[in-house]
Design a protein around this nucleic acid. Structure first.
Lengths: 188, 188
DNA sequence: CGACACATGTAAATGGTTACATGATTTT
DNA sequence: AAAATCATGTAACCATTTACATGTGTCG
């Protein structure tokens, strides 16, 4: 929490090419959506402050376009050298360890106080969500493998996808084990 | 975010036996600390509001003591029937899917803009933290296996520990793969 | 006697989501 | 003509952390 990472996601996404607020959020969802997300309430104000700090600048829509808006009213931004420097500086620093919060595990821990059917429902819902997420990760892995652009970034991107794959598979295995336990001795 | 889970953790922990603020935080750290944590700024005010809602009540220190304070000034709480009902009601509902935020992966995704040595340092730091966490999980698994109390809760507790084990092992494997990639073709 | 763990709280700041408000363009 | 998507933003609210403030008991 102590550092505002939204700034650096936006800088990193703009480093891939100029875009506008709405388009940046799409990029975020498609690329790092499995392990990060941004809301409008964060995105637009942060774009403004990056602009006022000179880390990004506004360009005319239509210029050298990588990701131009289809509608009319929109503001297209581009990263500046100062922005690139700020991004590099952030990357040179230490990551703050991620705070883990897992409500499903909390419910599992306290399951004694509720009924097994509710826990089962929640685990099944989680399993279904994670199966979808795994399908998305696998799709993204195929896209990375087939990509002919951004070649010098693909190794890193594949690494993040691989993390998702391992993490999600581990969770699926847990769901299976947990549901088996609920089926077996769980009723007592 | 929409639901204040702190309330239910405190209720769940008090269901194990009466305790005081400081002791509750210790219980939380020792039991669900791998996937949940509470700060003082959340804990004490929440205890107050649970008290005013009648979900917990204050008892004299020294009564039927499971977890009594060693120092002097302290307030010991006990869950009420209303509190047990509130906990059960929460458990009957649906879990809100956990929001995932992983700064290490963000740094990996944008690694192209920084230097490989910094990424390596961050991955190694994460691996070291996770090794420690895994050791704690394994210790907690041994404690659960050897426990002769709370028998009807042990299955659930073991399940949460198993989740930690699977998740942390998956992360360790990723760290190894990522470091190998950094050693190998990573320099180009 | 100094450091550290025990113990309880409050206040301010931050980070983040959600709902609101508005309107254009595309698709059905 | 309606619905969905594209597009930009603001305001209110909520959750959470961090720093502050205070004091006791224990151990070396």
């Amino acid at each position: 929490m102590r550092e505002n990472r939204t700034r650096f996601i936006l800088l990193g996404m703009l480093e891939l090419g100029p875009s506008h607020g709405y388009g940046l959020r799409q990029r975020i969802d498609e690329s790092v959506g499995q392990f990060w997300q941004e809301s409008w309430g964060q995105l637009y104000p942060t774009l403004r402050s990056l602009l006022s700090e000179g880390l990004i600048e506004e360009v005319e829509p239509g210029e050298e376009g990588t990701d131009m808006p289809r509608g009319r009213q929109s503001r297209v931004y581009c990263i500046t050298d100062a922005g690139r420097a700020a991004l590099a500086e952030w990357l040179a620093g230490d990551a703050t360890p991620s705070v883990k919060r897992d409500e499903l595990l909390l419910r599992t821990f306290f399951a004694h106080n509720g009924d097994p059917a509710s826990l089962r429902r929640n685990i099944e819902a989680s399993r279904d969500r994670v199966r979808l997420a795994l399908a998305r990760v696998e799709a993204s892995q195929r896209m990375i493998a087939a990509s002919e652009t951004y070649l010098d970034r693909l190794d890193w991107w594949a690494m993040t996808a691989r993390h998702g794959e391992l993490q999600l598979r581990a969770h699926l295995q847990w769901c299976d084990e947990a549901l088996a336990l609920l089926d077996g001795g769980g009723e007592r």
